[in-house]
Design a binder for these strands. Structure first.
Lengths: 253, 253
DNA sequence: CATGGATTTTGACCTATATCAAACGCATTT
DNA sequence: AAATGCGTTTGATATAGGTCAAAATCCATG
C-alpha cells in the first residue's frame, strides 16, 4: 500500500459529475438547516448539482489555488493541512461526510491550505458566488452559512486549547472521543471504528510526534481503555477516556 | 496595580452610548470594505450607532452569555480566552482597534469565549440580526462579513501551526512580528510599542509558561534582537526575527 | 511617598516528549 | 515465496521547556 499524497496532481477521477439532489441526499441534515422547507431545498438543488469522486491521495484543492467553491463531503474522509515555507506541515483537521470544507479561502479568494482525500471519496461542489446569491434570498440559508463558519471558528478555538495546554494523553483521548462522537452522529458505532489517518498525521494534528502517538495508544491499550489493531480501534472505557480529558494533572489509570 | 479580571461583572462603564457614525470613523478602512459607497456607509450608520466604553479588566462578553452583537473595537485592546472546566484557560487572541470580535457566538447563539479589555477601550456594537438583514440588501457587505469570518479561520490555522510545530523562540518571534505588523497597519510604529498583556497571557496564547516567555525575551535582548523594558518593547532586528520564524532547527544567533 | 500585591526575572532541578535507531508487520509486487 | 516498502512499535537517550522557589521590580492606592 503506497500512500501517493505528494505526487498526485489530477483533480479528480475522470468519472463525470453525477446528479444527486440535496432533496434526496441522506446527509441533508448535516449540510442543511433543519428547518429548510421543501421549496428551499429545491432552490438549493439548482446550484449544488456538481458531484465528484476523488481517490485516496487526491487533492481536493491546494494551498495557493483559486477559490471557486465550498465542498460538502458526501462519502469518504479528508484531511486539511497548512504548510510552512520550510516544509513543516500541520494537519488542521480531519473531515467526514456532511462536513463542509474550503471556508478558509473566502478571505482572500485563494486557498490557504490543502485538502487531501484519505480514502476514496465523493464530494459535492457548491459554487460560492451562487451560494452567496441564494443566501441573499433565503435568510435561513444565510444564517446557516454563518453558523457553519462560526462553528469552524469554535472548533479551532478548541484545538488551540488542546495544543496550548493539554498533555499527550489528554490530547489523544480528546481526539478519539471527538471521532467517536462524530461517527455516532452519523449513525456509525461510537466505540469501534477505523482510523483513516496514519500515526504521523494524528501526531501532526495533535502537535506530537508519531512515536508519542504510538506509545500513548499502547499505553491506553495496556490499561484497557482501548483496543488497537493498527488502524482499527475500539474504545473500551469511554467514561475513563472522558475523565482523562480535562484533568489538569491527569487521572490515575 | 491589581488586575481585576476575575471579579468584575458590570457590563460597561456607565457613560451613555455616544454617537459616532461609521462615515466619520477613522477606522473605517479596517471594519468596512474598501469599495463601500457613501450611500452604503450611510445605511450602515443606522445600525452601528451604539458605542460603549469599557475599563481595563471589564468583560465585553463572557463564555455562556447570549449572543446579540458583534463588536468592533474603536480604541483599546482586548484578549479573548476559552476556559476548560478544570480552570485551565487558553488565550485565543489579542484584538486591537478595527478588529471585530464575537464571531464564535454565531454558531450556537451563545458566546464560547470571554472577551476582556486589557486597557480602557471603546467598542462599537453591531447587532447581528440587523447586520444580517442589511447584508441581504448589500452584497458588498455580505461578502465583507464572509471575508471577516474566513480571515478568522485562517488566523486560527496559523496559530495551530505555531502551537503544533514551532519552538518557543519561533513562537515568540512570530508573536512579536505579528503585533508589529498590525501596529504598522494602524499607523503606529512597527518597531516600538507597549505590550498590553502580561507574560502569563502571552504564554497562554503561545502555549508556553510565563517563565519561558520571560527567559526568551531576555535571550532575545542579550542577542540584540529586541530591547525590552517590562511592557515596552523595541524590535531592533526585524530581519533576524523574521529568519527565526520558520527555521526548522532555528537560526544561529 | 510608603505599602503591598502583582508581575517579572533568574536560578536549580525535573520531566514529558523528542530524537535516534532497530526490529517488526502487513500489503503489494515480482 | 521472496522481496520491497511503508507504517508501526519499542527501546535508549537527549533536551526543551516545565516546575518550584526566591529575589527584584513595578505601580496603584491610601
Amino acid at each position: 500500500m503506497q500512500y501517493p499524497y505528494k505526487n498526485k496532481v489530477q483533480k479528480a477521477v475522470s468519472n463525470a459529475s453525477t446528479q444527486i439532489a440535496c432533496s434526496s441526499c441522506n446527509l441533508r441534515e448535516f449540510c442543511l438547516p433543519a428547518d429548510f422547507t421543501a421549496d428551499e431545498v429545491r432552490q438549493l438543488d439548482q446550484l449544488t448539482s456538481i458531484k465528484r469522486a476523488y481517490r485516496r491521495g487526491d487533492y481536493l484543492y491546494r494551498s495557493g489555488s483559486k477559490f471557486e467553491s465550498l465542498y460538502a463531503i458526501r462519502t469518504g474522509f479528508f484531511k486539511t493541512q497548512v504548510l510552512h515555507e520550510d516544509g513543516r506541515e500541520q494537519v488542521t483537521g480531519f473531515q467526514m461526510p456532511g462536513e463542509i470544507i474550503g471556508l478558509d479561502a473566502i478571505s482572500t479568494d485563494i486557498h490557504s491550505c490543502d485538502a487531501v482525500a484519505l480514502e476514496d471519496s465523493e464530494i459535492c461542489e457548491l459554487p460560492f458566488d451562487k451560494l452567496e446569491e441564494l443566501s441573499r434570498q433565503l435568510p435561513t440559508l444565510q444564517r446557516h452559512l454563518h453558523k457553519i463558519m462560526s462553528r469552524e471558528i469554535v472548533r479551532d478555538q478548541g484545538i488551540m486549547l488542546l495544543l496550548g495546554s493539554m498533555r499527550a494523553e489528554e490530547r489523544l483521548a480528546a481526539f478519539l472521543l471527538n471521532l467517536s462522537q462524530r461517527f455516532a452522529a452519523r449513525g456509525y458505532s461510537s466505540t469501534a471504528f477505523r482510523l483513516r489517518m496514519t500515526r504521523q498525521e494524528i501526531g501532526s494534528y495533535l502537535g506530537l510526534k508519531l512515536e508519542t502517538i504510538s506509545r500513548t495508544l499502547s499505553y491506553f491499550q495496556e490499561n484497557k481503555l482501548i483496543e488497537v489493531n493498527n488502524k482499527s480501534i475500539e474504545l473500551l472505557d469511554l467514561p475513563h477516556l472522558r475523565r482523562l480529558v480535562g484533568q489538569e494533572r491527569g487521572v490515575p489509570l
